[in-house]
Simulated assay, not measured.
Amino acid sequence: MGVVIPVEEPRHDGGSELEALSALVASDLSLVNSLILSRTGSDVQMIPEVANHLIESGGKRLRPLLTLAAAKLARYPGDGHIRLAAAVEFMHTATLLHDDVVDESEMRRGKASARMVWGNQASVLVGDFLLGQAFRMMVEVGSLPGLDILSTAATVIAEGEVMQLAAAKNIATTEDEYLAVISAKTAALFAAACEVGPALMGATEEQDAARSYGANLGIAFQLVDDALDYGGREAKLGKKVGDDFREGKITLPVIFAVRRGSPGEREFWKRTLEQGHADDSALETAIELLQRHGAIEETLARARHYGATACEALDVFPDSQAKRALLDVIDFVTARAH
């Protein structure tokens, strides 16, 4: 494996920033987990096998946690947020199943991806099943605004996936183009997860603020992932260091390095990312170039900028346990090393 360089380490143990949030919504999360378990059931044996392979593989349930906390932040008194949180997790799981097929990924959360165990066709179809179950739960809540928010997010996420395909292996991709991709592919679900709770209350200002918080948090989350792909530690990443590089993905650290590099260095990026000559030796060179041009550090600085914007979005809410927990999530996202 190529060189692994350290990025900013978390100030705590990597998960403590989520402890307050998890404790705050513990009873709701238990209901969400029970609902997830029941809705993955099917007479078709392979469906729960494939779904639970990923759902039970150690994910932090960050997006449904955000849904539950945002509902509490907006003082929502009902139980519709339970189904919406489960729907958000199913949407996320479906996108992971589909992503791994598109990216030909071998690992997910530290173990073999579903496509490596059951094949591409099963992964895609079980992802479709989970999307169907997500929409059933949205309808059961009976909130047209909630249905609109999450169904729109599903459309935007798909658009982001196609945008990423168009940008793949193209080192001329600009920073603005890449931000458009991750705003759709990653941040849209974060934004929707945070928005649906206040939407159940019909609180327009709070809904807009929660959406802004989620969108900026989602961008920060993806930018940290971009940095960790070249500067993380494989045991904590849950995937191979350099997977983005091997797959020819143009991420923000690469965009910075290409923009700041010499003509010879740009030829290197063209040869490896556009033409596919991305072996372990080339990965070591890529990491050296990223270090030389401060690309990883700059990407993390951008992530912190978006985290600060997410923090400001919560200013409209009065102080509360939910608000403080959501502020802690920003720290978790920008300082994590997993």
Rank of each mutant, 00 (worst) to 15 (best):
L62K: 04
G78N: 00
G59V: 05
S57P: 04
V44Q: 08
K72Q: 14
A70S: 15
A51C: 13
K60T: 05
L66H: 13
G59E: 08
R75L: 12
S42Q: 01
V44S: 07
K72I: 01
K60M: 07
P48K: 10
K72M: 07
G78I: 12
L54V: 13
I47Y: 10
D79R: 06
K60I: 05
R75F: 01
P48E: 09
S57C: 10
Y76F: 15
E56A: 15
P64T: 01
Y76Q: 02
A70I: 02
L54I: 11
A51P: 10
Q45W: 10
L54A: 04
A70E: 09
L66M: 13
A51T: 07
L66E: 07
R63C: 05
N52W: 02
A70R: 10
A71D: 02
R75Y: 04
H53D: 11
H53K: 12
L62S: 01
Y76R: 00
I55A: 15
L65S: 11
L65C: 08
K72H: 06
Q45K: 09
D43A: 13
A51D: 10
I47S: 12
G78Y: 02
A71L: 12
L68V: 03
L62A: 01
L54Y: 01
E49V: 06
R61A: 10
H53T: 05
M46Q: 03
E49G: 01
R75H: 05
A51I: 14
G78Q: 00
E49C: 04
T67V: 13
N52T: 04
V44H: 06
R61K: 14
K72L: 11
D43K: 12
A71K: 02
G78E: 03
R75W: 01
Y76A: 03
V44E: 08
A70M: 12
L62P: 01
D43T: 14
T67I: 02
L54W: 00
P64H: 07
P48Q: 09
A51N: 13
R63L: 05
K60G: 08
S57I: 08
H53A: 11
L66S: 03
S42N: 07
V44I: 15
G58M: 09
M46W: 04
P64R: 12
V50F: 02
A71E: 03
R75N: 09
H53M: 10
P48F: 12
L54F: 00
G59D: 07
G58N: 12
E56L: 15
S42L: 08
Q45A: 15
R63S: 06
P48M: 14
I55K: 10
Q45S: 15
G58C: 06
